[in-house]
Write a protein that binds this DNA or RNA. Structure first.
Lengths: 266, 266
DNA sequence: CGACACCTTGAAGAGGTTCAAGAAATGTGG
DNA sequence: CCACATTTCTTGAACCTCTTCAAGGTGTCG
């Protein structure tokens, strides 16, 4: 339970973009393209490395890669070569079947690593699409494997990243398998805002980078249901919604919706 | 598309248990407790190892462990120490929340590895329950990490196992997020029978080790819906069902149900 | 054989979907 | 900078799928 303090920088609707540089950035021209200088390192790399190991880690990132909004970083069927650490921007990953079914499997933000799906078969099995202009660090997987044989902390880190993804997906399965629409949306909002807060953003305000349809796909709901549920939350005074700008007025109410597991009519 | 040939050994309902030793076993007394002698090795361990590596691999399995039907191998909150390779038997894994929500996240059979959820936080985040008397190989995770720094094939194998689990869960999310009851059950049956077939069992007959309620939990349905959907498949001549014994009469019909993504009324 | 867990089936009801229309925001090109 | 096209979002009403509640049947195990 964390309390609902105002945004640390008192920002309004407009300023609450996920990619706004609230984590202080140095002048980009001064930054060497290397993890050891990266302010997101503690999000996507192991901590507690000594100087020698830090230098080795820098070998992992081959290049950086810009991805325009709407462009795909990788897609289903493509050869797998690298994992990608998100530096800036916001992604969705989704699986698609031949018969046109589509499922958003996750939304990823700065400091998170995507591409793990490709390891097992040497080919990607989902699409990663940028929901806003983004930059990723390209980490060739053979380099990661090589280095993690030598740097124990990196090996451990890779295992944790994969395990974390497995556990995250367990949570999504719980959501999809047992929650009703309001519970799903409440859980979704709490999850998003918690991750944003961990990156220095507000605990109560967020700017959705995805459409209602994408939220619906992720939550196993139709876009109309997402829209209606937002409206219901607004009626109940739990959130304010202006298009994609969401202000959470009552975090505890959202938590209650998720946890209380109300039987209808009780 | 594989054709529906009769069970390779022409077995009837009763004999179609998942743990029946259709993969030829040597006299158990003659078997050293070691992967190098294990007939399931190719399912849970990397292939193409040289003699030296094979010997190293034997160090991984510390002990074997019997799990009685209904007993838990590990449960939520327990300290994580080991991964477990299933030798015989059938498990379910499920996550539970404080407010009493429950979600079966998977069913696991011989040759599959469970416990990956525990790596990220050093504690398990789900329960693993034996659905029939089972035996597992206990593989202390620190030993695995140590050895996979030296045996590249093992390292690669671990990564693939985790990635495979991530991809599997993507499939479940697709199922839970976008399929209707009939589609879910059809996909479930096809998946089970395919995995059993890979272990030498019939392509068309299977013995469910789990209750309707557990199937329902996995598929995001109530047990009554599972039961009704089974009945519908029987009416349509797609399967025969006698309690937990299921005989698939028309595999293609099941595949059509999953893939055709019929709009209702079409 | 009796107790218990599990499964099936029916009928009523709720939650979410579908279809449809319009409003609001966004992007584009002149 | 504005007009127009497009995308996205909201809301209503009818419908459908799945759930809920209930009762009875079947199988299993001590």
């Amino acid at each position: 339970m964390f309390d609902v303090t105002p945004s640390p920088m008192g920002m309004g609707w407009r300023a609450e973009a996920t990619s706004d540089a609230k984590i202080p950035l140095m002048n980009p021209h001064a930054i060497k393209v290397a993890c050891s200088n990266c302010n997101l390192r503690e999000l996507c790399m192991p901590v507690g490395l000594n100087a020698g190991e830090l230098n080795r880690i820098d070998e992992i990132v081959a290049t950086r890669h810009q991805v325009k909004r709407g462009a795909t970083l990788f897609s289903n069927g493509e050869k797998f070569t690298s994992l990608y650490a998100i530096r800036t921007g916001f992604f969705k990953t989704c699986v698609t079947t031949e018969d046109g079914r589509d499922q958003v499997t996750g939304f990823q933000m700065a400091g998170e690593v995507i591409g793990l799906d490709g390891i097992v078969s040497d080919h990607h099995t989902c699409d990663a699409v940028a929901l806003e202009d983004a930059e990723v660090c390209v980490m060739p997987f053979d380099r990661i494997e090589e280095l993690s044989r030598e740097v124990t902390a990196l090996q451990r880190h890779m295992h944790k990243i994969m395990s974390r993804e497995i556990v995250r997906e367990h949570g999504v399965m719980l959501l999809l398998g047992s929650m009703r629409a309001e519970e799903r949306l409440a859980a979704f909002l709490l999850n998003l805002v918690q991750r944003l807060h961990a990156r220095g953003f507000s605990q109560s305000e967020l700017l959705l980078r995805m459409t209602r349809e994408e939220i619906g796909s992720y939550l196993g709901l139709k876009l109309e249901t997402v829209s209606r549920t937002f409206s219901k939350f607004v009626e109940d005074g739990i959130v304010e919604v202006k298009q994609r700008h969401v202000r959470i007025l009552n975090t505890d109410a959202l938590k209650l919706i998720v946890n209380n597991n109300q039987q209808p009519g009780q």
